[in-house]
Design a protein around this nucleic acid. Sequence first.
DNA 1: TAGATTGTTAATCGATTAACAATC
DNA 2: TAGATTGTTAATCGATTAACAATC
Lengths: 264, 264
Amino acid sequence: MNSPIHRTSRSLLLSTVERVPAAGTLRPGQPLRQTQEARGRTIPEATVGRLATYLRVIDDILDDSEDVISSDGLARVCGVNSAKLRKDLSFLGSFGIRGVGYDLVNLRARIAEVLGVTEHRDVVIVGLGNLGHALAGYAGLAARGFRVAALFDIDDDRLGERVGAVSIRSISELRGVVGSLTAPIGVIATPALAAQEVADLLLAAGVTSILNFAPAVLTVPCDIDVRKVDLASELQILSFLERRKSGNHDATTAREAVSPGGAN
Amino acid sequence: MNSPIHRTSRSLLLSTVERVPAAGTLRPGQPLRQTQEARGRTIPEATVGRLATYLRVIDDILDDSEDVISSDGLARVCGVNSAKLRKDLSFLGSFGIRGVGYDLVNLRARIAEVLGVTEHRDVVIVGLGNLGHALAGYAGLAARGFRVAALFDIDDDRLGERVGAVSIRSISELRGVVGSLTAPIGVIATPALAAQEVADLLLAAGVTSILNFAPAVLTVPCDIDVRKVDLASELQILSFLERRKSGNHDATTAREAVSPGGAN
DNA sequence: TAGATTGTTAATCGATTAACAATC
DNA sequence: TAGATTGTTAATCGATTAACAATC
């Protein structure tokens, strides 16, 4: 209501202010001042997204592989360019070993540290339909640093039902329960029509990060982070790319635009 | 196996080749040649993603609003910058009316046309756990141009079970059933360990677009489009942004890097 | 040392945005 | 006409990538 529309995450780099001035080329003998300063840079959003992937992949290969992996090897299993991977890792500080590679245990620890998943983070889910149940029951959550702390639904019939070890509570309890948690992430898995209302409730209870599965644009204050997952949008993007692949010109060009009065 | 690793979508602009040469500033009297050429440009991936949002929002407001909307008004309800919205729409051809705005019905039709959602597109879902059920039962799919054409699971106990109007089939039927559909999109909602195998089956059956919900990196030929939704990654990104907001320096800088031999 | 691989630079590309001429 | 709003430009910013000096 009283808050500016929030552009759904993606570009939330803080303090672009303190950017590193291009300090010219390093010369032999020159102290590595720049290296120090580069460490102070903010981590780009795109990099943060990939760090989560690296962390998961490293967990997958920690057992069955060597202690050390090269950027090339890790990039291959992560499906990214190795230059990009090295650049991403350079934001964490440099602890690869030239001529050798990265120590997997160190690397894992450092990424987890930067992402803040060294201890478990609370998650509350609102809306326990099919999707909410799926999210609440997702075993991977605990493995990746999260704990389902509470579940809420507006439907009284669902009250008390247990999903895993957590039982479903009434929306009316949201404020109190969420208020007692430490910086929980709110997950909205309600129908679109309820999404804004639920978001307002979460904000009022002190939540500052929201993951929104409802196909609705949320209006929140600009210091609140919102990320959105929209199944149909993903499918539509695939649909578009498919058409473009198959050479459908309408997908790439716009000849027959419905321009009123335009020269067709 | 024999295919190069595929970088998960995002940057699949075709024919960057035919880019429009910067043709200087338009001058009065100069014919609008450039306008014609600009129409031939490929639509940026970022724009395609937002078009899906615009389409949904327009559907939401088609009834209760005026026939025409300004870029400012639409941008507000879509949660984006109005300059960005105008730029996005300019890729569809110009059919806004200066001084007035965009005709909502025209705009909706044109976006749907470009996205290729004018007729229903088939979707097949593999893996009918909680998530698969949620996706299969998602009512919004039909409204946004998709049809759940088939469901597959490896668990024989689920065989024949119906989700909506569609019954679950054995994986062994996948090739035949999918082969009989027209360019279906494959959705992977299996555990991570099964994801690559399922992807291979889908590819063998002729699928060229995949939406992957399993937390696993898929290796596919580079002419195949893969998009990925990873719940835990989204949460980890929010987690990181939260830490950065609260001034945790480790989230923005990397001072105490575990650099072996580094001067701490 | 020779070979290998990192960390960084710089070129390039793509995306965002303010500003404004065109024009309804 | 005057006011309003589009469509486009150009500046800027962010992301990607090849290349290579540094160095293990």
